[in-house]
Amino acid sequence: MTAVPLLCTTYGELAGVLGSLSAEESFQPTGCAGWGPVDLGFHLLGDARRALVALCTPAPGPADTDAVSYWTGWQPPGAGDDEELWSTRIAASTQGGIAAIAAQYAETSAAVVVAAGRVRTADTVRTQDRVLRVGDLLSTLVVEAAVHHLDLVRELDRPGPSAEPLAEVRRVLEGLLGGSLPDRWDDVTAALRGTGRERLTASDRLELGPGASRFPLFG
């Protein structure tokens, strides 16, 4: 699946889950400690808005970041690092609940897909003080949305991301590792363990060897 259809699939699946949630479900735990679906949905809305801005912000090349190296600076928050947690919860609480956030996400993410289809994947754009080719930017958006889709449905009876977005997450994780993840891991396990959402087992560490010390590969 090429970049824009993959993004369309990823965003569409996530918008569908967000739009299906009841007010009660919006306060269930997620894979992001301290956030319910309403908070995570607001975070995802912010990412979609950033994507829309990025796709409309051309930058002179060459790119200084690609789909893999983008993630090297992102690690799980440390103990006591709760500034984003609280600021997101406060902002999310002013948005009118999960239904309003889901509607804004569906609208904004659909606009991102349209904007992505109007530029070439080889064009360079700027986001977060980095310059990426559009194709690499779209990969980062797919990866973030797919991983957070897993976070969103952790305690909910809803489907997770489909095979194609999860395969892109695995591709990026293997790029960060510089080698293959264990074959016995399915792509969901790869996403969860590669981002620190599940701990490595003793057998994982044995199989990964020195590479185990690099986990989580991003968070």
Rank of each mutant, 00 (worst) to 15 (best):
M1R: 14
A3I: 06
V4K: 02
L7P: 12
L7I: 12
T9F: 00
Y11C: 01
E13F: 02
V17A: 12
S20L: 09
L21C: 12
S26P: 10
F27D: 07
F27G: 07
A33L: 13
A33K: 12
V38M: 13
V38C: 11
H43E: 08
L52W: 10
L52C: 06
L55A: 13
C56Q: 15
A59G: 11
A59I: 07
P62H: 11
A63N: 06
P77N: 10
P77C: 07
A79M: 11
G80V: 10
E84M: 14
L85M: 15
S87N: 14
R89Q: 15
A91Y: 02
A91E: 14
S93N: 14
I98W: 09
A100N: 15
A100L: 04
A102W: 04
A103S: 15
Y105M: 03
Y105S: 06
T108D: 12
A111Y: 06
V114Q: 13
A115V: 09
A115Y: 07
Q128L: 11
D129M: 02
D129T: 06
L132P: 02
D136F: 02
V142M: 00
V143A: 00
H148W: 01
H149C: 02
L150F: 04
D151P: 01
E155C: 06
E155A: 12
D157I: 03
G160W: 08
P161I: 07
E164F: 01
E164G: 05
E164T: 03
L166S: 03
L166E: 01
E168L: 08
R170F: 02
V172Q: 05
G175Y: 09
P182A: 03
R184V: 12
W185N: 05
D186C: 10
D186L: 11
V188H: 01
A191Q: 09
A191F: 09
R193T: 10
R193K: 15
T195E: 13
G196T: 04
E198F: 10
R199D: 15
R199I: 00
T201G: 13
T201S: 15
A202N: 02
S203W: 04
L206P: 00
E207D: 13
R214W: 01
F215Y: 14
L217A: 05
